[in-house]
């Protein structure tokens, strides 16, 4: 049998007003906050502008630093937007691309382009893995991850202890009403927290 959802209204005036008032306050604060355009994780924005740090006299190789590491790059300085070959391969995480910004026909800037997916980066951050391929900024979360692990152990132990029904040390069906059973809590379940009174201590 299915029933149509019915709204339950009425008697909710005060909480409703509180909730709406809070919402209005929050909305005013959020609209008033000087938020600009989001940076996002696109290729276009993940590009870090890296200026060549050194250049060989012939102008066909130099070094560039990205993500805290310095790479030697070799490139053909006369061709615009030509791909750069990277001497010590930084891996798939970062690509370098040269661009001529001054318009003198010489490439003067190398862009480091992130090639790592967001999901991959989440993995690096979560396990605090030092990797050249880590391209998105963020804090590392190894400790938090491990604490979560313990939380799950604690939560599951707690949930199982609570949800399991047992009588006289023996596990019976996991669910059901206590009162529908023949022998509710024996002395093992009797507790002293309320002075041992049967009614839960409402005296």
């Amino acid at each position: 049998m299915t029933t149509r959802p019915e709204l339950r209204l009425g008697g909710h005036l005060a909480p409703g007003i509180i909730a709406v008032a809070l919402f209005v306050i929050m909305a005013v604060v959020f609209v008033g906050a000087p938020l600009g355009d989001p940076v996002g994780f696109d290729d276009a924005t993940a590009i870090q502008n890296e200026t060549l740090q050194s250049e060989s006299p012939t102008g066909d190789y130099g070094s560039v630093s990205a993500n805290g590491q310095t790479y030697a790059v070799a490139y053909n300085g006369s061709e615009e937007t030509a791909n750069v070959s990277v001497a010590n391969d930084p891996g798939v995480g970062v690509d370098f691309r040269e661009v001529d910004t001054t318009g003198d026909g010489q490439s003067d800037t190398v862009y480091a382009i992130s090639r790592t997916s967001i999901t991959e980066n989440i993995g690096y951050l979560m396990f605090a893995v030092d990797s050249d391929q880590r391209s998105a900024p963020g804090e590392t979360f190894l400790v938090a991850f491990e604490i979560i692990d313990m939380v799950l152990v604690g939560a599951l132990v707690g949930a199982v202890v609570l949800a399991r029904r047992d009588e006289g040390g023996e596990v019976v069906a996991a669910l059901g009403l206590r009162d529908s059973d023949e022998s509710p809590g024996t002395s093992a379940g009797q507790v002293a927290a309320d002075g041992g009174t049967e009614d839960g201590g409402d005296n």
Binding site: V151, G154, A155, V157, G158, A159, V161, L162, R178, P184, G185, G189, Q190, V191, A193, D194, D199, G200, G201, D202
Partner: peptide, 16 residues
């Protein structure tokens, strides 16, 4: 989370 479970540890006791 463990504290929640511990407070309700006395499962047969309504107060707990």
């Amino acid at each position: 989370l463990p504290s929640y479970a511990l407070v309700a540890f006395l499962k047969e006791n309504k107060g707990s």
